[in-house]
Design a protein around this nucleic acid. Sequence first.
DNA 1: CCCCCTTTGAAGATG
DNA 2: CATCTTCAAAGGGGG
Length: 495
Amino acid sequence: MFGPASSRSGSAWRPRPAPAARPGGVSPRSARRAPGSEVRTPGSPPPGPAPRPALPRPAHPRAERIMPQLDSSGGGAGGGDDLGAPDELLAFQDEGEEQDDKSRDSAAGPERDLAELKSSLVNESEVAAGGAGVAGAGAGAGGEAEALGRQHTSQRLFPDKLAESLEDGLKAPECASGMYKDTVYSAFNLLMHYPPPSGAGQHPQPQPPLHNKASQPAHGVPQLSPLYEHFSSPHPTPAPADISQKQGVHRPLQTPDLSGFYSLTSGSMGQLPHTVSWPSPPLYPLSPSCGYRQHFPAPTAAPGTPYPRFTHPSLMLGSGVPGHPAAIPHPAIVPPSGKQELQPYDRTLKTQAESKAEKEAKKPTIKKPLNAFMLYMKEMRAKVIAECTLKESAAINQILGRRWHALSREEQAKYYELARKERQLHMQLYPGWSARDNYGKKKRRSREKHQESNTDPGSPKKCRARFGLNQQTDWCGPCRWVCPHHYPLCFKLLP
DNA sequence: CCCCCTTTGAAGATG
DNA sequence: CATCTTCAAAGGGGG
């Protein structure tokens, strides 16, 4: 068995994310938005993490967690038993079953049929789960609510344009099958969010300056770093940097071996052609108390120096001099806005007061390390885009989610392992960092907006309680979500 | 310009 | 302790 470990309880990895824990095949977050998905069968597990056996808590709050084990003798899920688990079956629903479900659903009405037809092209898992729900304990009104909820969700989440896009994209059988199997584990192409500080591509080929997504290759052709080129090809050729299109985050690639992450000895560094005069080792002190900032003064480099996007956190923090090339952001560190920082020339246009205020406001943000699925998405997104001619991330992510569940245990384990190393590296790079640091930076506005609104009916739970509805079988979300069953009641009672 | 959508997993917050 | 919430990536779309 394997699965992500949790530092929270110091417990073991749970076997696999159980799709059954998400009625209607939607995530908890989706469930909050999709009325029908709130319906839970009495015996069904809550959407939260499954109970896990306790393990010794690591000394460090963010200390290493137990890795997913390919060993099938692990507790709970031995051998292939998981494959027979109901929750797994849901994830592996195939086209045939989906067709049946769709046919069943199509009898509900033309309008719903249309919405279902559109949404089901991607939401097979939802449809399948809905069908399962009918057969399950939640049949009846709950199942109907769920179906209607899906309809509403589909209409809301996939307006015509997107639906058409999905239809086009999913015409390729591969896109709809959810059984993408030729996932090639490419460790180097995965994470490497925390590159060797030398910007130490083995190859001194110039890299494009930080650019926006307009300059990205169509359909997200993987942006391989020099390191990737080095490791993946005996005759590496210049390649564009691995750039986070949206945030300009440069994520050069590294060896998945953790030792490769950190053990950049002076000898190994010497082999790397420095495009900037990065300080000599130690480059990434491993001790949390090493105070690496003291070790790494801002490197000096001529303007236009290739590989300008990576820096040690300290370099980022200390690079406030306009025009100074030392402003090389670490991949995990981005301006709070999530946008690329102004280029030096732009910065010079700002007044000193503005710059000062901006500097104070724009303390760099250390991003969360990517989890296994995020790493998987990062690697496979380009493939899906190419195969399905889709561009919209929401649709692509749905496909990726299904493919993720279709992955074998071994394949998933690879990503869990990479994610574990990612966290470990992140923890060592930023010993004092906590995910709490980024809390509220995205949703603050929304939350504030909601708090300002006195008419906000609150959570579905509160909504149910307010109307005396059964928390288990009834759904009555906030009125803004327009519950097909209860919204008249909501609208009637709420101001 | 900013936020939404959509996915899973990790982890902080809350009751 | 169980549950809820937020944020990681991505990029088109919409207000």
